[in-house]
């Protein structure tokens, strides 16, 4: 993988990212940019390549071809399922990952994230006894320990109830307002419409559309009150 030098324009840029698994092409020349403080939703049908794209941006997989503008260390990563240890407490998990991230002051970073996620009173509780929503908050907190300029989230709300989802998006909105670029994948196109500044539509490893949710509705001439219907029609018109 080639890592470009960071310029002062986009917070994250992917150029011509291609990924092949044997003879199968999971991603075909995907390019996009995310500005500082922008929230970008990656949407598409199952098998479109959403998780593969995010895992390449996060540095978990290497692309067969293409570039990503930032190294993994400068990008926060929040996988779909909480990637934390159930036998460790909230604070121990945060401290462990802060040390592994080589954060200058791990204890200060832990305290900051406990305050930011509202989990200070659960700091000594083992992860195994927390609710799914709280585990996901710790999961996001781990991704933010190094205070990255870009945060990637893979289907962050999939295991949460509506109230927990609400709190999650409030938290993400606050991060974006603070200048952090957010790129998330989701199956819930309603969330993409509500919370994303821009959507990236992927199907069969190709980028079919990039723009605001409103622009996607206009492309298909659909009803502005039903983004999901517009999205389905968009895919149908392009043979998906």
């Amino acid at each position: 993988m080639t890592v470009e030098t960071v310029s002062d324009a986009p917070a994250l840029r992917a150029g011509g990212v291609t990924k092949r698994f044997g003879r199968r092409e999971a991603l075909r020349g995907v390019s996009f940019e995310a500005a500082a403080g922008e929230v970008v939703a990656v949407i598409g049908p199952n098998g479109a390549g959403k998780t593969t794209l995010l895992s390449i941006l996060a540095g978990i997989r290497t692309p067969t071809e293409g570039t990503v503008s930032r190294p993994p260390r400068e990008i926060g990563w929040v996988p779909q399922q909480p990637a934390v240890y159930g036998k460790l407490s909230v604070a121990e998990n945060l401290r462990l990952f802060a040390r592994l991230e080589r954060v200058a002051d791990p204890d200060a970073a832990v305290a900051r994230m406990l305050a930011q996620t509202g989990l200070a009173d659960r700091a000594d509780d083992e992860l195994g006894v927390l609710s799914g929503g709280n585990r996901q908050r710790v999961n996001i907190a781990v991704g933010l320990l190094a205070d990255p300029p870009v945060l990637l989230l893979d289907e962050p709300s999939s295991s949460l109830d509506p109230r927990q989802r609400e709190r999650l998006w409030e938290f993400i909105g606050a991060l974006a307002a603070g200048g952090t670029s957010i790129v998330f994948s989701t199956h819930n196109v309603g969330e993409a419409e509500r919370y994303a500044d821009r959507v990236l539509v992927l199907a069969d490893g190709e980028v079919l559309f990039t723009g605001t949710p409103r622009a996607l509705e206009e492309v298909v001439g659909g009803d502005h009150r039903d983004f999901e219907a517009a999205f389905v029609r968009f895919l149908h018109e392009r043979g998906h």
């Binding site: 996060a58 978990i60 996988p79 990952f97 592994l100």
Partner: peptide
Amino acid sequence: EEHAFSRLVRGLV
């Protein structure tokens, strides 16, 4: 199983 592997191998370890 704890899904920590992907987090670890992206540059941490």
